[in-house]
Deep mutational scan, measured.
Amino acid sequence: DELVREILGRCTCPDQFPMIKVSEGKYRVGDSSLLIFVRVLRSHVMVRVGGGWDTLEHYLDKHDPCRC
């Protein structure tokens, strides 16, 4: 939770990309009902993408309208 909030807090946009914790390891992202699975691996916040894992920073770079 703290690492996810820290990464989201780096955004300086007036309207921050919403990530709402639904349950342990599950977050709702953006304005959709899309759920992502998150885990911490060796101090990196990882997001389940397709059949693999990606860093939360890279995921936000691709999906946050402010960072695109």
Rank of each mutant, 00 (worst) to 15 (best):
V47Q: 00
V29K: 02
R48V: 03
R67M: 01
K26C: 15
I36G: 04
R28C: 10
E57I: 04
C13I: 08
V45P: 10
R42N: 15
K26T: 15
W53G: 14
Q16S: 10
H44P: 03
E6W: 02
V47R: 00
L35M: 12
K62E: 14
E6A: 11
D64T: 01
G9T: 07
R5K: 14
P18I: 06
E2I: 15
C66I: 03
T12E: 07
S33A: 12
V40L: 12
V47C: 10
R67V: 00
G30L: 05
D61R: 09
D1W: 05
L35A: 11
H44V: 15
G52H: 14
L56D: 02
E57H: 04
R5G: 10
V49P: 02
S23W: 05
F17Y: 14
C13W: 01
V4A: 02
G52M: 14
E24F: 00
G9D: 14
L41Q: 15
D1F: 05
F17M: 03
H58P: 01
M46P: 06
L3N: 04
C66T: 03
S23A: 12
K21G: 04
G9A: 13
E2N: 14
S32F: 03
L56M: 04
V22S: 02
D15Q: 13
S33R: 12
L60S: 01
H63F: 12
V29M: 10
D1E: 11
V29G: 02
D64V: 01
P65D: 03
Q16I: 07
D1R: 05
C11D: 02
I7F: 04
I7S: 07
C68F: 13
S32V: 05
V45D: 01
C11Q: 00
E57S: 07
R5M: 12
M46R: 05
D54H: 14
Y59F: 15
S33K: 13
V29W: 05
E2W: 09
V49D: 15
R28A: 09
G50P: 12
F17K: 02
V29L: 12
D64F: 07
F17C: 00
L34S: 15
I20M: 12
H58N: 15
Y59P: 00
M46F: 12
I20K: 12
L41W: 13
D15H: 13
R42E: 11
L8N: 03
D1V: 04
R10T: 11
S23R: 07
V4I: 14
R5T: 12
K26I: 10
E2F: 14
F17W: 03
V45Q: 01
T55Y: 12
E57W: 04
M46L: 12
H63Q: 05
F17T: 02
Q16A: 09
W53R: 15
I7H: 06
S33F: 05
L60W: 01
R28L: 12
E6G: 07
C68Y: 14
D61G: 10
H58K: 11
G51R: 10
C68P: 08
C11S: 00
K26V: 15
G52S: 14
P14W: 02
R10P: 02
I7Q: 14
I20V: 12
S32M: 09
R42V: 04
S43L: 04
T55N: 10
K62S: 09
S32P: 11
P65L: 03
H63Y: 11
S23N: 06
T55M: 06
S43E: 15
R39H: 12
H63E: 11
D61A: 11
C11L: 01
R28E: 06
I36Y: 06
